[in-house]
């Protein structure tokens, strides 16, 4: 079997970037599945795309802008209605620790 495309450490790193707590079995399964997908995706390497411009939108458009006009806001209560936790008119979150 060929060298896996993605290491367990990379899976852990990516999970941390994506803020996903994965269990150990999940990490292993994820590595195995990502490896299969990345192996499939590897077929793209066969294409020479050096002189090909990237497409980020299939339908090319430019300069879509709005005028600088104020529109009504959402009432605070409606905005907070979906918040899992609030305090007064604030959204409340658990304490912030830097990693």
């Amino acid at each position: 079997m060929a060298e896996p495309k993605i290491t367990l450490a990379e899976v852990e790193h990516v999970a941390r970037l994506a803020r996903l707590d994965l269990s150990e079995p999940e990490k292993k399964r994820m590595r195995f599945q990502l490896d299969a997908i990345l192996t499939y995706i590897d077929k793209l390497r066969r294409l020479d795309t050096d002189d090909v411009e990237p497409t980020s939108h299939a339908i090319p458009m430019v300069n879509v802008m709005r005028e600088d006009e104020v529109r009504p806001c959402l009432p605070t209560e409606e905005m907070l209605a979906n918040a899992p936790e609030r305090e007064g008119d604030f959204v409340r979150v658990p304490r912030i620790i830097e990693e």
Partner: peptide
């Protein structure tokens, strides 16, 4: 879990949450 939708219980800090 901050503004809307599901928030897991028991997260001691933001990273855990």
């Amino acid at each position: 879990g901050v503004k809307y939708g599901y928030r897991a219980a028991g997260g001691k800090d933001l990273i855990q949450m």
